[in-house]
């Protein structure tokens, strides 16, 4: 299969797949794994996401399939205009993604009370994506997967060991097997004054228990300091769960939801160790990554808050 996206400059790449002239092309983010470019084509606002040259992954075709399948199920997502194994061209949805603005700016004051329920409705639709069409996505035991990642980092964390112990002994029965977004949270949603406009960042999608997505959305780190609103800093458990069940999502067992919130808290803590390790190992020298290494204890604190051991 031809793959013009791997090494071509973005302008040349876009000319090869789009008919109208490309205007206002500019790079938006400098992530190590993916490049994001904004441009207009024939008056239409678009986004290019592509793997950088030499990237080993061929995951963009899967992401394009997910976006199309999600859209067909009623999940708000950017429309895919063109896609190959190393790039996607999609609609540019206007709105805000920065959590602190979504949680604090006046422009979103009317949206905030609606967001938790909207997330429930969106997740119910997302979990209707035909899972049999995505048999190529991994379906792993999350506890074992993250325990192995923790072990690969070589740093002892007794708090996370307590978490792994409790998660292993209190695992709820699987509520179902669906496509799981894997990073559905405040920060990966485009929000307008009326609410959720699009769900982004499908890179971590996999198959698994749909409650994983609900629990992840409730992890304390995604409240960005608004701690009296457990769902993303904008809502309550009842709003999320009620809307999810009313929209045809499965029954949400509250103990299972808390198990998945604890699992998510452990997972984010280990992800923070990974980020700090990138600096410590010299892979990426960065004061920001260095500082994240010392924020791991925030996740340990949050996790201990969900565990029974030594609670006085």
């Amino acid at each position: 299969m031809s793959d013009g996206g791997r090494d071509a400059e973005p302008a040349a790449l876009l000319r090869s797949v789009l008919d109208a002239p490309i205007e206002n092309l500019r790079r938006l983010s400098g992530g190590a794994s993916r490049e994001t470019w904004s441009f207009d084509c024939g008056g239409r606002p678009l986004i290019l996401r592509r793997d950088p040259p030499g990237a080993p992954k061929e995951g963009m075709a899967v992401e394009a399939r997910l976006l199309r399948a999600a859209g067909a199920c009623g999940v708000p997502v950017p429309e895919v205009v063109a896609a190959e194994s190393s790039f996607i061209v999609m609609e540019r949805v206007e709105g805000e993604t920065i959590p602190r603005k979504i949680l604090r700016d006046d422009a979103f004051a009317a949206a905030r009370p609606a967001l938790a329920a909207q997330c429930g409705t969106v997740l119910a639709a997302l979990h209707r994506i035909p899972v049999e069409d995505f048999a190529d996505l991994p379906d792993t035991d999350q506890v074992a997967e993250w325990r192995d990642i923790l072990d690969s980092l070589g740093q002892p964390h007794p708090a996370f060991e307590l978490g792994l112990r409790w998660l292993g002994e209190n695992r709820p029965p699987r509520s179902g097997t669906t496509v799981v977004h894997g990073d559905f949270r405040n920060g990966n949603l485009i929000v307008g004054p009326e609410g959720v406009r699009a769900v982004l960042d499908w890179e971590l999608a996999h198959r698994g228990d749909p409650l994983e997505d609900l629990g992840w959305l409730c992890v304390k780190a995604w409240r960005f300091g608004v701690n009296d609103k457990p769902v993303g800093g904008f809502g309550d458990y009842d709003e999320l769960v009620g809307a999810y069940e009313d929209a045809g999502g499965g029954h949400v067992d509250r103990d299972a939801l808390m198990w998945w919130q604890a699992m998510g808290t452990l997972k984010w803590g280990i992800m923070c160790i990974v980020q700090g390790s990138l600096h410590v190992s010299g892979t990426v020298r960065s004061v920001e990554l260095a500082a994240i290494g010392r924020r791991v204890c925030e996740n340990e604190w949050d996790l201990l808050d969900l565990l029974p051991y030594g609670r006085d």
Partner: peptide, 11 residues
């Protein structure tokens, strides 16, 4: 529980 109390104090 002893370990849990110690880990909480450490964190």
């Amino acid at each position: 529980d002893d370990i849990g109390r110690f880990v909480r104090a450490t964190v």
